[in-house]
């Protein structure tokens, strides 16, 4: 059992939780993730570790409410428990030697880039962070990213915060004006990572993305998370989650992510209906 030590609502669809998991916290590095299972009937699903507090034995996860499991997780209160937490999983992202990085975060990726931003700053790199969302209500972590020591750029679809437009427009300007950028790191929706990778390719700037395929055991045993990288089959869970964005087959990744869409929808709807039922019983 793993206790939810703190819970914070970041936006209408995004929440942050600090979970007591001392063994995970003590060995986690940037870019790694955990797999959760909420209860006996639950599925196993991966979430990136957004930060750790080794002394208190806490890990922070930030998640977007999407399917049944994340919806159910969002209903758990502070002090509540999660049945299973396994981690840290995946390879950590090696950022040594980077001098001038642009880090792009979209959706929950905004929180997931936080450990990397901190590590890059720690490495002595210049770090510019671009975060994007549909509108300002869906933005979060801006203060954290700034206080971690990065220059922050914001893009929203409706212009309610920062620049009106996409993260890629800001990224393009930075790439055009600064030829010394030696790393672009993008974490977020697959479409965003694909567009960022396509943009940076002609500039020849190394681009890392963090893939989010469907996983089951997440220890390299099942291969559900197969991703084609540079024409080779890789396992997202043990070979990744960080890969060269110029080599990843994003279209295949998207198709594989959608393979249980119908069943996932059914599962979520059944859960929503059961919540309604509980309410009418009250």
């Amino acid at each position: 059992m793993f206790k939810i030590a703190r819970k914070k609502v970041l936006s209408s669809t995004v929440q942050l939780m600090e979970i007591s998991a001392p063994l995970v916290a003590s060995s986690a590095k940037s870019g790694q993730f955990v797999v959760l299972r909420l209860n006996e009937r639950g599925e196993r699903f991966p979430l990136t570790i957004a930060s750790t507090d080794k002394e208190k034995g806490l890990i922070t996860i930030v998640f977007q409410i999407a399917g049944k499991s994340t919806l159910q997780l969002s209903t758990l209160p502070e002090g509540g428990v999660i049945l299973d937490v396994l981690g840290p999983l995946g390879k950590y992202t090696d950022l040594t030697g980077v001098k001038n990085a642009v880090v792009v975060g979209g959706g929950v990726g905004i929180a997931e880039i936080y450990p990397e931003v901190k590590e890059l700053v720690h490495e002595g790199a210049r770090v510019r962070t671009i975060i994007g969302a549909r509108n300002k209500d869906l933005l979060f972590f801006a203060e954290e990213l700034e206080s971690a020591g990065s220059e922050l750029f914001i893009a929203t679809d409706d212009g309610s915060a920062g620049r009106k437009g996409f993260v890629t427009e800001i990224l393009k300007e930075l790439l055009d004006s600064d030829k010394s950028i030696d790393l672009v790191l993008a974490v977020g929706p697959v479409v965003m990572m694909k567009v960022v990778s396509n943009l940076t390719k002609p500039y020849g700037v190394k681009t890392l993305v963090s893939v989010n395929p469907i996983m089951l055991d997440a220890t390299g045993m099942c291969g559900a998370c197969r991703v084609t990288v540079g024409g080779k089959v890789k396992f997202g869970c043990v070979d990744g989650p960080s890969f060269d964005g110029h080599q990843v087959d994003f279209d295949e990744l998207m198709k594989r992510l959608g393979q249980f869409k119908e069943l996932e929808g059914l599962s979520k709807q059944k859960y929503i209906d059961s919540l309604k039922c509980e309410k009418c019983r009250e």
């Binding site: 599925e43 089951l216 099942c222």
Partner: peptide, 24 residues
Amino acid sequence: YSANEYLSRINLMQAYKFPETDTP
């Protein structure tokens, strides 16, 4: 599927009881 994934979904995660269980 690999047999590992297929059988793990069904045996370990009890996908044969879906949607009573969450793993499809």
